[in-house]
Structure formats: C-alpha cells, structure tokens
C-alpha cells in the first residue's frame, strides 16, 4: 500500500473521530444540566483521545491497533432506530446514542475493508473495525451495568 492510500484511509478515520467529537459537543450544547454535560464531556474526551491516536499513527505511517474484535453483546443491533437525544436526555439516551454511533462506524469500516483490494489497506480497515468494536463494547458494558440492570 502506498503512503497516499494509507494517509487517505487514516484521514477518513480521523474525520470520523473528529465528527464524533463534534457529535458530543453538539449534544453538550443542547444539554440542560450538569450530569449530562459531565458525561458528554467524558465521552468527548475519549473521542479526542482517538483523534490524537489516529493522528499519531498517520504521522508514524503505521497502524498500532490490536486486531482483536471485542465480543458482541448484541445490544446495538436490537436497539431502537436512531433517536436524537433531546435537552432532557437521560444516561440511557446518551449511552444508546454512543453505542449506535460506534456501531455505525464499525459498519462503515467493515464495508471499506470488504471493498479494499490492497491487502495493506484491507488490514488497516479491519483493525479500525476491531477498534470500533471495542469502543462499542465499552459502552455496551456500561449500558448493561448502569441501565438494564434489572433485565
């Protein structure tokens, strides 16, 4: 894989992570009380960490991501179709939004990996799929322990 293709792939990932930061910033602007804001700020900081990580990989010219895909708890797939949180958003609303967002990114990278003809590029996307699966799993675990405790 040439450097241009590699950079383009990581630019795409970078774009998505930056969009995620913007997503939480937007929700935060809509938020009406402190608990929402602190949770959104925490999730936004995570996404900023991802932006920094991918920028670093782009600069180094190599992908340092584990290829291990997290076990799928199957929550995301069953969750109600997108609903944008409103000013009164609960922790559940925020976590559902986060899980669905990670799921969307994972699906996109999966498609890109399938479509990629160069093995190097395929591997970059596969690792991004794995990375997103771990992010999704992180939020799904939180959902299980904090939201659907009784089910």
């Amino acid at each position: 894989m040439d450097a241009t293709t590699f950079a383009a792939a990581l630019d795409l990932a970078l774009g998505r992570e930056k969009a995620a930061v913007a997503f939480y910033r937007e929700l935060s602007a809509m938020a009406s009380f402190a608990a929402q804001k602190s949770t959104l700020a925490e999730f936004m900081a995570m996404e900023e960490g991802h932006v920094a990580m991918i920028s670093g990989m782009k600069a180094k010219g190599s992908v340092a991501l584990s290829p291990t895909v997290a076990v799928d708890l199957g929550l995301a797939a069953r969750m109600d179709a997108e609903e944008r949180p409103t000013a009164g958003m609960t922790f559940q609303d925020i976590l559902v939004a986060a899980i669905k967002k990670e799921e969307r990114s994972g699906v996109l990278y999966e498609r890109l990996a399938e479509a990629a003809s160069q093995p190097g590029l395929k591997s970059v996307f596969e690792r991004l799929v794995a990375e997103e699966s771990r992010h999704k799993r992180y939020f799904e675990d939180l959902y299980e322990s904090e939201i659907s405790k009784d089910n």
Binding site: S32, F33, A34, A35, K37, S38, T39, E42, G88, T90, F91, Q92, L142, E146, I147, S148, K149, D150, N151
Partner: peptide, 23 residues
C-alpha cells in the same frame, strides 16, 4: 417495563459545584 431506573439530576446545575460522573 421494569428493566432499571436512573436518577433525575436536572436539579443540579453546574454552578452548584457538585461533581457528577456518569449521572
């Protein structure tokens, strides 16, 4: 539906200075 309950923290404003993590 009885899958779980959460708090209503809408009465705590940022200016109240109460640190809140994950609700």
């Amino acid at each position: 539906a009885a899958i779980g309950q959460g708090p209503d923290l809408s009465f705590i404003a940022e200016s109240d200075g109460v640190p809140v993590k994950r609700f």
